[in-house]
């Protein structure tokens, strides 16, 4: 029995990470209609900076709960700053051009960031373990489950709730959704679309950075992590529907659950499972589960 509880927790853990990755991508796509290929390495940047802070300053510098707050927040802020520079300088000149330009620019940033990681942080994985091990493990039957994973699961739900609140319960959210539906009409109503784009891009990037900051203590900061994360996020985005936050949430849960089942019972086709789900959803509902 206990193994099934752990299976369920694993599914939630994976879903939580996928949601955090996809949520930012969806905000950016929903508002700006940009597929931000650099998103994966903005996530990796959050991971690298957080790990670097913990390794250079030392975990002792952050007593108590600060260990779980300050280093990831530094990571998030660096990513936010990067996004703040990237949007007006690289993306803004591309809005009026055909989409291929945006894809090329964001893909270029993805590659540049990858080599910057190699240049700055070196080729070896940056591994920090204290925040992960300090929380210990929970006993579920005769099995162990790392408590840190509960934190990551919780983070996914907290960010989902915060985004729902921001989008549906605040004036900013209404403006954001209105701009997403009809950019020209929103501009005609006096919305400063330019700054709204910047803010959306920075928020989307910071969620990715947050995911990276929290994931790095459980995993490692390693070259290539951003590119793989990007691919996964796209799968979830396609399943859930482009630009749909609800789609990201449900899509992440579906992928998380089916991946765990696949790994446990059909390990040979674990990799194929993600694509099979996407193929089935696209065949039945080409716009994704909650796409417009």
């Amino acid at each position: 029995m206990s193994i099934y509880i752990i299976f369920a927790l694993n599914a939630l853990l994976f879903a939580s990470v996928l949601f955090l990755l996809t949520a930012g991508l969806n905000i950016i796509y929903g508002v700006m209609r940009i597929i931000n290929l650099a998103h994966g390495n903005l996530y990796a940047l959050g991971a690298y900076v957080t790990a670097w802070v913990l390794l250079t300053v030392g975990y002792q510098a952050f007593p108590g709960p600060l260990l779980y707050i300050v280093p990831p927040i530094i990571g998030v802020l660096v990513v936010g700053l990067g996004a703040l520079i990237m949007e007006p300088t690289l993306l803004r000149p591309m809005y009026k051009r055909i989409e291929e330009f945006q894809l090329l620019i964001t893909f270029g940033v993805l590659l540049i960031l990858e080599d910057l990681f190699l240049l700055i942080f070196g080729p070896y994985p940056l591994s920090v373990r204290e925040p992960y091990t300090f929380l210990g493990v929970s006993k579920i039957g005769d099995l162990s489950y790392p408590n840190y994973n509960f934190l990551v699961i919780a983070l996914g739900f907290i960010v989902a709730f915060a985004l729902w609140f921001l989008l549906y319960k605040t004036k900013f959210g209404i403006i954001l959704r209105a701009t997403s539906l009809d950019r020209e009409m929103a501009a005609a109503m006096g919305v400063n679309v330019k700054s709204l784009f910047t803010v959306s891009f920075v928020i989307g990037a910071m969620i990715a950075g947050l995911a990276g900051g929290f994931i790095v203590t459980k995993d490692t900061a390693v070259l290539g992590m951003g590119i793989e994360a990007l691919v996964l996020a796209f799968v979830v985005m396609v399943i859930g529907g482009l630009g749909s936050m609800k789609g990201a949430f449900v899509g992440a849960l579906i992928v998380g659950a089916l991946r765990q089942i696949g790994t446990a019972y059909f390990p040979e086709i674990e990799l194929a499972i993600l694509w099979l789900i996407a193929a089935v959803v696209l065949t039945i509902k080409p716009q994704g589960l909650f796409g417009r």
């Binding site: 853990l13 994973n149 994931i215 793989e228 991946r259 790994t263 390990p267 990799l271």
Partner: peptide, 23 residues
């Protein structure tokens, strides 16, 4: 026993594989 084959550098969260191995 059945063994796991995650893609090279394609997986960072091995929870599912680890649990299956323990199982």
């Amino acid at each position: 026993l059945d063994q796991q084959f995650p893609g090279l550098f394609k997986v960072t969260d091995f929870s599912a594989q680890i649990t299956s191995m323990i199982q």
